[in-house]
């Protein structure tokens, strides 16, 4: 999804670091199919999620030339249209498809503006706006990531039964994290954690978003 903006701006001091909140086994076919020119890293323990206090994918952080964050972690332009998809036929209402396309375009245009203009981009946030938008982790979130880490290690050591209570504890402690929930939940034959329990959880959001609204003008 980032290939075009990468190609257009890679010679102008811009790059992309893509991080898969995933196992290398599951991520491999996607990376090999896309063959992106930019760096693609594998984060099976969701270390980056823990460091940056991320909740879902895709999220993105803008980091300037000096290593300073100029937009904190946020939804990278996805819209909740999938919730209005007909769950039998898979059909997407036209209006929702339009909103999804708009969200992606608005976000990508913002990235392009920053890639071209750097600090002068109107999408670069000042310290006050950064503070408002920054989600800070609490004790439960930090503990959830510790349990997730332990569960992951136990799972890779073949100790599935020992891993399970730690994944459950991670989900309980950090219910807002779709990353933890979906990574530790059973998958269908397509590799998606999108069974009835996923949909029940999405429906329980009610008016709240699955992909949180991005604070960029024109964003649906």
């Amino acid at each position: 999804m980032w290939q075009k903006v990468y190609e257009d701006f890679k010679d102008r001091g811009f790059t992309i670091v893509s991080v898969a909140m995933d196992t290398p086994e599951a991520a491999r076919r996607f990376i090999e199919a896309a063959q992106p020119g930019y760096l693609t890293l594998i984060d099976r323990d969701h270390h980056v999620s823990a460091l940056y206090n991320m909740l879902n994918v895709p999220e993105a952080v803008w980091i300037d030339e000096t290593g300073r964050i100029v937009r904190p972690p946020e939804n990278a332009g996805w819209f909740d249209g999938f919730r209005k998809r007909n769950r039998t036929t898979g059909e997407m209402p036209e209006v929702e498809a339009q909103l999804m396309a708009t969200a992606k375009t608005v976000y990508m245009d913002a990235v392009r503006d920053w890639a071209a203009n750097g600090a002068a981009s109107r999408h670069v946030l000042d310290a006050a706006a950064m503070s408002r938008q920054l989600r800070k982790p609490d004790d439960d979130i930090a503990l959830a990531h510790a349990h997730f880490r332990l569960g992951g290690h136990l799972l890779r050591s073949g100790k599935d039964a020992a891993a399970r209570p730690h994944f459950e504890e991670a989900r309980r402690l950090h219910p807002q994290s779709w990353n933890i929930w979906r990574q530790t939940h059973s998958r269908n034959e397509m590799g998606f954690a999108s069974g009835p329990e996923f949909w029940a959880r999405v429906d329980a959001l009610g008016e709240r978003r699955y992909y949180e609204k991005v604070n960029i003008e024109g964003m649906p």
């Binding site: 811009f14 991080v19 995933d22 300037d64 590799g191």
Partner: peptide
């Protein structure tokens, strides 16, 4: 360091 970096996450699930 020295470049603007878009740090972006994704997953297969």
């Amino acid at each position: 360091r020295g470049k603007k970096v878009l740090l972006a996450t994704w997953a297969s699930w």
